[in-house]
Amino acid sequence: MAKLRKFKEAIIEKLIFLSGIASIVFVALIFIFLLREGISVLRSTSLGAFLGGKFWYPISDPPKLGILPLILGSLLVTLGAIAMAVPLGIAAAFYIAEVAPSRLRNILKSFVEILSAIPSVVLGFLGITILVPFLKRFLDLPTGLTAFAGSIMLAFMAMPTIISISEDAINAVPREYKEGAIALGATHWQTLHRVIIHGALPGIIAAAMLGIGRVFGETMAVMMVTGNAAVIPNSLFEPVRTLTATIAAEMGEAAKGSPHYNALFAIGIVLFVISFLINLTADLFLNRSRRR
């Protein structure tokens, strides 16, 4: 009997080990595949011309495969989204965690959850039917399909992540800090901005980074509202095209093995690396906030 149990435990242990390893293997395989398909873009263009090229004409002859407009498009949309979502999200987290009366708090928290459950196509759909025409009229633009519209959509998507993780970080600040400050005669507001924010800061930064990561890799909603013009943008109020939208829109029509096809995979590598860096930073801060 004892032997059988030992045997069973050994099997279970192996299974757990395998599933752990599997995730690593999958990531490695994906990366190898991306690399293999993407690296051949260097046969038709140099690395500098690929990353720094100002023109993305993949089907002209010869194709021009410069992704600078796409990188800038992604950056612009992401930065716009961050500028809205990070301050709003953090403020909302403070409100929910520290200010709202408990009933309102629960209502707000369920709203945040609902917001995070809306599929991005649906958000994009709302964006295209409501937000885009509204921007066009309200800001008097030639078209509402702009980086700004994408930023607003993405801000909506990043907010739930930022709010819930920041809120966790704020709640994780030991009660004793708050009591200590109140007992010293600090007002609620002074306690918030002089003590609690310091305790929660690493977690809040991690929340912002994860929100950014979420936004940067998002495809559907952005593709629907940004107008998809692969030109270097001058302002938030012009159409742009992001890295993700480019892959999604063109993968179907690129002939397998063509320079265009390889370039799309290379864009995938660029996305992968940037997302990885963002998540890595977030992890560093999350770990730091846990160690406190």
């Binding site: 030991p174 004793e176 800090y177 009591e179 200590g180 400050a181 007992a183 010293l184 002089r194 003590v195 310091h198 305790g199 406190r292």
Partner: peptide, 13 residues
Amino acid sequence: VGMVFQRPNPFPL
């Protein structure tokens, strides 16, 4: 009327 707590609670400053 100041207070000293059971678990010392300096601020994270």
